[in-house]
Simulated scan of single mutants.
Amino acid sequence: MKIDNTGKPLGAVNARGDARAAKGEGRDSAASTEVQSDSVDIKSFSARLATLEAALSTQPAVDEAKVAEIRKAISEGRFSVQAEAIADRLIASVKELLSDKH
């Protein structure tokens, strides 16, 4: 099948791709000629997204105070890595990501 990229809208096609059935040929034309259309308005979503993007651009990407606190704890020997807690959270995160795909 050749892909038509002329930008012209195609006629109505049913789920099997049969244009004749969608036009009402060979079947009850009153029932099959009804064409439904859907529309989506993304202008309000785009405006909201732009507002959020502007707000986020003013926020630092890294919490410098938290980084300084961790650096100080490391240099003073007070920082301990809890490998089991990190592993548990990593596994939970992976499970959540995998369950969202299904």
Results as ranks from 00 to 15, higher is better:
residue 46 S to N: 04
residue 12 A to G: 03
residue 74 I to T: 01
residue 48 R to S: 09
residue 36 Q to D: 06
residue 50 A to G: 12
residue 87 A to R: 15
residue 32 S to C: 13
residue 6 T to K: 05
residue 19 A to T: 10
residue 93 S to W: 04
residue 36 Q to P: 00
residue 30 A to Y: 06
residue 93 S to D: 13
residue 53 E to A: 14
residue 74 I to Q: 06
residue 43 K to N: 06
residue 56 L to Y: 08
residue 11 G to V: 05
residue 11 G to Q: 07
residue 86 I to C: 06
residue 39 S to N: 03
residue 22 A to I: 01
residue 56 L to I: 07
residue 50 A to D: 10
residue 14 N to C: 12
residue 100 D to S: 14
residue 26 G to E: 04
residue 73 A to L: 11
residue 78 R to T: 06
residue 65 A to K: 02
residue 36 Q to N: 12
residue 65 A to Y: 00
residue 55 A to D: 07
residue 17 G to L: 07
residue 44 S to Y: 01
residue 64 E to I: 07
residue 44 S to N: 06
residue 58 T to E: 15
residue 76 E to H: 02
residue 26 G to K: 00
residue 36 Q to R: 15
residue 9 P to D: 06
residue 52 L to P: 02
residue 83 A to G: 02
residue 47 A to S: 01
residue 95 K to P: 02
residue 33 T to K: 09
residue 4 D to L: 00
residue 94 V to F: 03
residue 46 S to E: 13
residue 91 I to N: 09
residue 19 A to S: 06
residue 30 A to Q: 10
residue 86 I to W: 10
residue 15 A to N: 13
residue 18 D to R: 14
residue 61 A to Q: 09
residue 36 Q to Y: 11
residue 25 E to Q: 08
residue 62 V to Q: 05
residue 55 A to H: 03
residue 9 P to M: 06
residue 29 S to E: 07
residue 10 L to T: 04
residue 81 V to K: 08
residue 8 K to G: 03
residue 96 E to D: 08
residue 59 Q to Y: 04
residue 67 V to I: 07
residue 8 K to E: 12
residue 94 V to S: 05
residue 37 S to H: 10
residue 9 P to C: 02
residue 16 R to K: 14
residue 64 E to G: 05
residue 36 Q to I: 11
residue 66 K to L: 14
